[in-house]
Design a protein around this nucleic acid. Structure first.
Lengths: 116, 116
DNA sequence: TTGGTATTTCGCTAATAACCAAAATACTAG
DNA sequence: CTAGTATTTTGGTTATTAGCGAAATACCAA
């Protein structure tokens, strides 16, 4: 999850995700949407791939990238972990725009020193 | 919103938020939960404050920090922007664990070149 | 005013990250 | 096989950032 938040910290990478949300793009198509170099973009793709936010398909020399929406639920759940109201342990399933989010809140947390 | 994602990119800062979710803490109390120096922690507080993720109250020489849950909705909304299913413009209000989220999805997006 | 406590600021270091141009790799049509 | 295209990797630069110790600031009891 640290990789995900790290990947989301960069505005260019968020724009890449926003573009892929519309539809899959080849590396070249994405390159046309941005003013930065292709080599830099390639580096961004690697970060997003490492965070499992995107996936790639190769066909000949063409690489197509697509959004991996599956991580979305995890991110939201993690945000609940950071911001959610303290409450007794409870599980609530919520459907939002055809996406199902499993929300888990807990009143007990590990000591922060144990992480990072 | 860029400040928010940048603030969330660091694991120590996420732990700070997680601690503040339990209850407000003074700077000293937070310092006891982490192994890093107080000066570094102070720097982290500044990042979180700049992102509006936390607020502070002074009483004498003691500073108390508390979580600003108001930003949560914005972050989730922004995540929908990045990951939400493409759909016609629609507004849907969803209540999740006493938190109301206004979800806005749009089928038209600005060209990424215009941002960052 | 002094001394003590709580906290932040400052100046520095080392690591990381975004950016670039050039080189390399991968693929394919002719 | 060669030439061209699509994309990534490499090596370098510059800026940013997390961490530290020391100094400074803010506050208050004695």
């Amino acid at each position: 999850m640290n990789e995900v938040f790290k990947a989301l910290s960069d505005p260019t990478r968020r724009e890449i995700l926003r573009s892929l949300r519309q539809r899959d793009h080849t590396a070249g198509e994405l390159a046309e949407l941005f003013v930065i170099s292709k080599s830099t973009l390639s580096g961004h793709f690697n970060v997003l791939k490492a965070a499992d936010l995107i996936a790639q398909d190769k066909r000949g020399t063409t690489v197509t990238y697509r959004l991996n929406t599956g991580v979305f639920e995890e991110v939201v759940a993690h945000l609940f972990d950071l911001f959610g109201q303290a409450a007794p342990i409870t599980t609530r399933q919520v459907t939002v725009n055809q996406v199902t989010i499993n929300q888990v809140t807990s009143s007990s947390q590990a000591a922060p020193k144990e992480s990072a």
